[in-house]
């Protein structure tokens, strides 16, 4: 195998991209952003990172079960968000 086969472009780009996203996220602390902007930056970078892993490295869309896999991931994401924000709503935000 030659180097090109060993290190395919997509993987290398994905890796560089994830490193860049990490650096951007780190900027939140380094540049002492306000809480709101900081959270927005973190949300965006974290979900983009997850997307990179899911599509570029985990090949979520490559097989005949693409639809089932994506439905599963979206459903899980829905449950995750409901669990997290629902808990915050009933445990913290709900009290006056």
């Amino acid at each position: 195998m030659n180097m090109k086969q060993l290190f395919p472009r997509g993987h290398v780009m994905g890796f560089i991209f994830s490193m860049v996203l990490t650096a951007v996220a780190l900027g939140v602390v380094v540049y002492e952003l306000s809480f709101k902007t900081g959270m927005i930056v973190l949300l965006v970078t974290a979900f983009m990172q997850a997307g990179v892993q899911l599509v570029m490295f985990m090949h979520a869309g490559e097989s005949e079960d693409k639809k089932a896999i994506y439905t599963n991931v979206y459903y899980a994401l829905f449950i995750a968000l409901v669990t997290i924000f629902g808990t915050l709503l009933t445990m913290i935000w709900g009290y006056q």
């Binding site: 809480f35 913290i92 935000w93 009290y95 006056q96």
Partner: peptide, 11 residues
């Protein structure tokens, strides 16, 4: 943390 400080003040 500032986030919760807000809600606390409101309370």
């Amino acid at each position: 943390h500032s986030e919760h400080e807000d809600s606390k003040d409101e309370a």
